[in-house]
Structure formats: C-alpha cells, structure tokens
Amino acid sequence: MEHTEHLEHTEAPADMKKQIWRTFWILFALTIVDIALYFILSPSLPKNILFIVLGIVKAYFIVGIFMHMKFEKKFLSSMIVLPMLFICFFIWLALTEADYTYWLRWLFGK
C-alpha cells in the first residue's frame, strides 16, 4: 500500500539555494566584523551595544532565512518573536538590580 501524507507548508522561494549562500556570507562577514571591532575599539558601553545589535542582526538572518521564518505566516512569526519582548524587560530588570549590587560590593567589599 502506498503510504503518503499530504502536508501543509509554506512554499520556499525558487532561489532558496542562492539565498542560503548569501545568508552564509552575511553571517561570516558579520562575525569577522565582530572580531575586528573587538580589537579596534576600546571597551565601552556603545561598543557593547554595537555587539548586541550585530548579534540581533545575525539572529534575524538565522531565524528568517535558515529557519524559514521570513516565509511563514505573520501570525506564526509574531507568536514566536513577540514573547521575546519579555526578555528585554527582564534584561532591564536584571541590570538595574546588578547596578545596585555593584554599589553594595563597593560599599562592603567583595
């Protein structure tokens, strides 16, 4: 007996292979830029923010092209991406408290 299933899925674009390699070179270049910036710029807050922005750009390409999210339904992609906003809140919360802990360390030592 023939055993086949019908599957629902969103179609991949016709030039998928080209897009995959283009994404690879973008990720490759961004990583090189990361390492170059590490040695060119001296440690500072803007530099760290730049690294995080580059990380998010890389994440966009991995999730969008490699994980096919760019071609999925809007509803699905927002369902997965929007909960990540809670993480932003969590980061803000943690860093605010960490600043307080920094001054406690400064005051009481270690």
Partner: peptide, 30 residues
C-alpha cells in the same frame, strides 16, 4: 499557521528553550 502540527510544536519548544537560555545569559549579565 500553514505548517504541520509537528513543526508548530517544535517552534513552541524552541520558544521555551529560548527563555531558558535567556535566563541563563541574563544571570550571567547580572
């Protein structure tokens, strides 16, 4: 969602895993 059940569940799992990793990285940040 125009995707199969299995793939949808994989996405949900990855979302939960993303929270796990985020909390670990945020602890590091803290």
């Amino acid at each position: 969602f125009s995707i199969s059940y299995g793939k949808l569940m994989m996405w949900i799992f990855l979302l939960s895993d993303a929270f796990t990793f985020s909390s670990l990285l945020i602890s590091y940040g803290f």
